[in-house]
Design a binder for these strands. Structure first.
Length: 753
DNA sequence: CTGGTGACAGTTTTT
DNA sequence: CTGTCACCAG
């Protein structure tokens, strides 16, 4: 197969790049995965590089899997010797080998956010820190940020009182993890970076092993990951990264797209290649995308283009409320399917927050339209799955205190909070793990337990020891079966009337997943590592032909023929909380949703929201629908919504002029007959429109939320209004004509009630 | 240990 | 309007 045949000129240039650092700036749909895989194949096939020496790093398991599959096709069995994986899985593997340098055994547990929170709460209790004043989640964020920046507890320099607390908890938290022989996700990266920094021999080994390093989604790297890559590539400098700063939507998880600038600074000779040709979308959709993203200041300008042709104009629609928004989406999908313009499975509905999925689901259910909701509840975060895995983890790693606390009384066996707390504190006094403490108890050590408690604890220990013995010989699946059997877990779980059967089905699915690891030498270890680093079980059967509902974040990396982006309203997209400065957030009333006029806005937050919108837009291949509602209820309270400012960036010339969708009969009548109903003081307050009556003379005559009619554009909603050099300028969102800014004196605007 | 109650907070979540 | 969690009574 000719590796270069199916590539365009710039792609080919990237694939053939010889040696040294290279930065590929790849727009959406520009074939970056193809560039990465073909480059790997090229290195092996044309340049004779041993696959063993090639390291390809991704962020998601899915991306890693796809890359492996593609390379198996390109290279055949030789591809087995490549190292392809996520940052976390690669680091986990390195730490199995090198973790002893830091005092961890190779059986360490990997803690997810739930487990982390359990540790933080425990530590806070021990330290008498009030979790009402210092929220554990916020503390965890602080710890995570420090780790992402490779700041050790002893190097942590607090800049405020609450950071002082974070620093103290951080130190104790790390101790607690180490005592449990456990690492969190951030540790995987931080510790590997440290090892490479502090152990030159280890660094040399890995540098020699991986002479070519390739990175996908480089804009999403954090400091730890950047340092890691830099260290690995320091000798050979064969660092090939693919990035799109316009798709950086994870800054709140520590991702820092300025690593792209850092890369250019650290490697001044780096080859920079721009991939702007798009193979996914129509030119209309790309024009929307270009128009939107060009508003961002912090970026290198790119201009997406395609030879796919203009395509269909995009549709901007105003619905009355979230219910009608849902009905419009379902209606439109069903109409298109009926007209054979697309299949149901070609459609995706994207929203900013998961909470929005409910109204959408209601509409789908009501219309009898099947759909698939993506990612709301993750498999490995279900309680029953976590319980089952906790059993396996304490067998593999008896020091794992979080897993032990999780299941020591599940199913209930008389070991209440008191006893468990006493066990841990006694183990603390002895300076050993709960496991060791229980063994001491069995050996007749003097303990603080009542006779009854001691008896129950020893019963539990007996069970535990029996299963640990079994773990030496059994596969993960058999061991799990054994553990569930011995504890009567099935009966326990099925006793739940409502969800018992579903829960047990999930357990059976877990068993099936574990079965894939039977016959392996380190069955248990391999299985546990896999489930700790993977969020979803592989969907074996491809879903039938149904539309999918998902958040904009989850849409990244996917593509659909037809895309609906819903809830395009101020406060939702851009999201109110994204626009706030963290220090303002504490004091802010939640209902003001970030757009009260007095609040200052965080421009970086706004840019990220815009990128999120851009990600959504660029998922569409053929048709794009942008939808906002006139009013929406959040947290039970209804209020008037302003159309998103992002809509104003969409050129009206790209929108469908008229007549695509006929408004439902009664659409107009659904609005309250009198404006008083929705312009009552409480509603106006909610809209952030509090104005002092004394200033009435300078007041604009239109207000956000007003309904107006224009002779050309028809009915619309006022987004904003203000006096600009003596003239009143009114910004109006017209469902048919787009968002326009008009001078009230000239535009023949009529108020509609 | 279970079940009820009241307070409270409520983006996004690759690993 | 929800879901979660701490707390208390039985």
């Amino acid at each position: 197969m000719d590796l270069l045949a199916e590539l365009n000129e710039t792609q080919r240039e990237a694939v053939q790049w010889a040696e040294g650092p290279a930065l590929v700036l790849a727009g959406p749909g520009s074939g970056k995965t193809r560039v990465l895989t073909h480059r790997v194949a090229h290195l092996v096939r044309e340049r004779g590089i041993s696959p063993r020496e090639i390291l390809a790093v991704t962020f998601t398991n899915k991306a890693a899997r796809e890359m492996k599959e593609r390379l198996l096709q390109l290279l055949g069995p030789e591809s087995d010797a490549l190292t392809i994986g996520t940052f976390h899985s690669i680091c986990a593997r390195i730490l199995r080998r090198e973790g002893n340098l830091l005092g961890f055994t190779s059986a360490y547990s990997i803690y997810d956010t739930d487990d982390q929170l359990a540790v933080v709460k425990r530590v806070m209790r021990e330290m008498n820190v009030d979790d009402k004043i210092h929220r554990p989640g916020a503390i965890l964020d602080g710890i995570s940020r420090a780790k992402n920046e490779l700041v050790a507890p002893e190097e942590f320099r607090p800049r405020s009182f609450s950071q002082e607390i974070v620093g103290r908890i951080y130190a104790r938290y790390q101790q607690a993890l180490k005592q449990s022989n456990a690492l969190d996700f951030d540790d995987l990266l931080m510790y590997v970076a440290w090892i490479l920094q502090k152990h030159p021999d280890a660094l040399c080994r890995y540098q020699a092993r991986y002479t070519y390093v390739l990175v996908d989604e480089f804009q999403d790297t954090n400091m730890a990951q950047y340092v890691l890559l830099k260290l690995l590539a320091a000798e050979r400098r064969n660092l090939f990264v693919v990035a799109d700063e316009d798709q950086s939507i994870y800054s709140w998880r520590g991702a820092d797209f300025r690593n792209i600038q850092r890369f250019r600074r650290d490697y001044p000779g780096a080859r920079v290649i721009l991939l702007e040709r798009n193979y996914r979308s129509t030119q209309t959709i790309l024009d929307v995308a270009n128009a939107v993203i060009s508003r961002n200041v912090q970026r290198i300008p790119k201009h997406l283009y395609t030879d796919r042709g203009t395509g269909t104009p995009i549709v901007v629609h105003e619905a009355y409320d979230e219910g009608e928004e849902g009905r419009f989406v379902v209606d439109t999908i069903q109409t298109m399917v009926a007209k054979k313009q697309c299949r149901a499975g070609d459609c995706a509905v994207m929203y900013r927050t998961n909470a929005q999925s409910r109204a959408m689901e209601d509409a789908f259910v009501l219309a009898g339209q099947r759909y698939k909701l993506i990612g709301a509840i993750r498999f490995y975060e279900r309680r029953e799955i976590k319980d089952a895995l906790a059993y396996l983890r304490i067998l593999h790693n008896p020091a794992d205190s979080v897993s032990l606390s999780r299941i020591i009384n599940v199913p209930p066996r008389g070991l209440g909070d008191q006893t468990v707390a006493a066990l841990f504190s006694w183990a603390g006094e002895l300076g050993c793990s709960a496991w060791d403490a229980l063994r001491a108890l069995k050996d007749g050590a003097e303990s603080p337990f009542s006779a009854r408690a001691a008896k129950l604890l020893l019963q539990f220990l007996e069970l535990w020891e029996r299963l640990v013995d079994a773990s030496q010989t059994m596969s993960a699946a058999d061991l799990l079966k054994e553990a569930l059997e011995a504890t009567g877990y099935e009966q326990h779980i099925r006793s739940d009337k409502d969800e018992g059967d579903e829960r047990w089905d999930n357990i059976k699915e877990l068993l099936a997943a574990a079965d894939n690891y039977s016959g392996m030498t380190n069955s248990l270890s391999a299985f546990l590592e896999e489930v700790s680093l993977v969020s979803e079980v592989d969907n074996l059967e491809e879903q039938p032909d149904v539309p999918v509902l998902l958040t904009l974040h989850m849409a990244k990396g996917l593509e659909f023929s037809v895309v609906f982006i819903v809830g395009l309203e101020e406060g939702i997209l851009p999201h109110g909380r994204s626009l706030a400065y963290p220090e303002d957030l504490e004091k802010r009333n939640s209902w003001s949703q970030g757009w009260s006029s007095s609040a200052r806005e965080n421009p970086e937050g706004l840019e990220e929201e815009r990128r999120l919108f851009y990600v959504g837009v660029t998922r569409a291949k053929d048709r794009l629908h942008l939808i906002h509602a006139f009013r929406r209820s959040t947290y039970g309270r209804g209020s008037v919504s302003k159309p998103s400012r992002f809509l104003a960036d969409v050129p009206a010339s790209l929108m469908q002029a008229k007549g695509g969708h006929t408004p439902r009969p009664g659409f107009g009548e659904q609005r309250p007959a009198s404006p008083v109903a929705w312009r009552s003081p409480s509603v106006v307050d909610l809209a952030g429109e509090r104005k002092d009556a004394a200033n009435a003379s300078a007041e604009p005559s239109f207000r956000a939320g007003d309904r107006v009619r224009h002779p050309v554009f028809g009915e619309g909603t006022v987004v904003n209004s203000g006096i600009v050099s003596g003239d009143e300028q009114v910004t109006v969102a017209f469902p048919k004509g787009g968002v326009k800014t008009l001078v009230a004196r000239y535009a023949k605007l009529e108020k509609v009630r």
